[in-house]
Computed example of a mutant assay.
Amino acid sequence: MSGTRTREPGDVFGPRTTLFADVLSVGLATAVACLPVLTAPAALSTACAVLRGAGEDRPATAGRYFALLRRRTRAGDLAAGAVALAGLLLFAADLALAGAGLPGARLFAVLAAAIGVSAALVGLRACARPESLTDWPAAVRAAAGDAVRDAGGSGLVLLAVVTAALCAWMLLPLAFLAPGPVALALTAVDVRRTQGS
Rank of each mutant, 00 (worst) to 15 (best):
R192F: 06
T134C: 14
P130H: 03
L133K: 03
T6M: 08
A165L: 15
M170L: 15
A75C: 07
D11P: 05
A175T: 03
A185T: 12
A21P: 03
L88D: 00
L174Y: 01
A84R: 05
L102F: 07
L121M: 09
L186W: 06
R193L: 11
L174R: 04
L121Y: 01
V140W: 02
G3L: 12
P137V: 09
P137Q: 00
W136N: 03
G196L: 14
R7S: 11
L51D: 07
R129T: 10
D57H: 12
G76A: 12
L88T: 15
D22E: 11
F20S: 08
V83T: 14
V117R: 03
R192D: 09
S2R: 04
A151V: 13
P179D: 13
P59V: 14
L166I: 09
T187Q: 05
G55Y: 01
S2C: 10
A21C: 12
G76D: 07
V148W: 15
P41N: 10
R71I: 15
D150H: 13
V182D: 07
L89N: 06
R72K: 06
R64F: 09
R72N: 02
C167T: 10
S154Q: 13
L35D: 00
V122T: 02
L19Y: 00
G180K: 01
A126G: 00
L124C: 10
A109Y: 07
D77M: 01
L38N: 07
C34S: 05
L158C: 14
A79V: 15
T30Q: 00
R129P: 00
L88Y: 07
T194E: 14
G180W: 00
T18I: 13
T187A: 13
V140P: 06
S197W: 11
L51S: 10
G99Q: 06
A42K: 01
P9Q: 03
T6H: 09
W136H: 05
S118W: 12
C167L: 15
L172Q: 01
I115K: 10
A114H: 03
L69N: 03
G101E: 06
L133F: 08
V189R: 00
A29I: 01
E131A: 14
G155T: 06
V148K: 05
R70S: 11
D77A: 05
V50M: 06
F20V: 14
A151Q: 08
V122Q: 00
C48R: 00
L85G: 09
A49S: 09
L156F: 08
A79Y: 06
A92T: 13
P179S: 07
V122N: 02
V26S: 02
A54I: 02
R7H: 00
D11A: 11
D150M: 06
P36M: 06
G153E: 10
L171C: 10
L111K: 09
L68V: 04
L44T: 12
P130Q: 01
G81A: 04
L158M: 13
F20M: 11
A80L: 01
P130W: 00
A151S: 11
